[in-house]
Computed example of a mutant assay.
Amino acid sequence: MMWALLSKRTQLILASSTVLVCAFGLEMLVQFFTGQSIHLIKLISAVATAVLLVLVPAAYFLFRQILKRWPILQKLTFPDLNGAWEGYLTTTWVDPETGNNPEPIPATVRINQTLFGIHVSLETDESVSDSAQEVLETDRKAGKYRVWYRYDNSPKAAVRHRSPNHGGLAFLEMHWEKDSNLLTGRYFTDRKTTGDITLRRVPDMVG
Rank of each mutant, 00 (worst) to 15 (best):
S45P: 01
L172K: 01
L40S: 08
N181P: 01
T184C: 09
Q65A: 13
Q65G: 15
A50I: 11
S180N: 10
I44G: 08
L172E: 00
P155Y: 07
V21R: 08
L81Y: 07
K141A: 15
V202W: 02
H166T: 08
G207H: 11
E86M: 05
G35H: 03
Y151N: 01
I105Q: 12
H119K: 12
V135R: 14
S180G: 03
L136M: 09
L26C: 07
D190E: 11
E97L: 14
K144M: 09
G185D: 01
F32W: 11
N165L: 10
E137G: 04
H161K: 14
F78W: 04
E86L: 04
E134G: 03
L81P: 00
L199P: 00
V147K: 00
L14S: 07
K68V: 07
S16Q: 07
V47K: 03
E123I: 06
T193M: 07
D204A: 04
A59V: 10
V159G: 07
V94C: 06
T194M: 13
L183W: 02
F171K: 00
W70V: 04
L12K: 13
G83H: 04
D95K: 08
T91M: 09
Y187P: 00
D179C: 00
P164W: 11
L81R: 03
A4Q: 14
A23V: 00
T184W: 04
L169M: 12
A48G: 06
Y145D: 00
L199V: 00
I118V: 14
W3C: 00
D80G: 02
T92S: 15
L20M: 13
R160W: 07
T77A: 07
T108A: 04
Q74H: 07
L12A: 15
T124C: 03
I72Q: 12
W93N: 08
L53E: 10
G35N: 04
L182V: 02
Y187R: 03
G195D: 03
R162Y: 14
A58R: 13
S127N: 11
T138G: 02
T98Q: 10
P57C: 04
V56K: 03
R9G: 07
T124R: 06
G195S: 05
Q31T: 09
L6Q: 09
H175L: 02
L20S: 12
Y60K: 14
E173A: 01
M28A: 15
A132G: 15
E123M: 07
G168D: 05
Q113E: 03
Q65K: 14
T108S: 08
I118C: 09
S45Q: 14
T91F: 09
T114Q: 04
D95I: 03
T124Q: 06
L12C: 10
S180A: 12
F33R: 09
R64M: 05
T193S: 13
E103L: 12
P96M: 06
L62H: 11
V135K: 13
L62F: 14
L6T: 05
Q36G: 03
R160D: 05
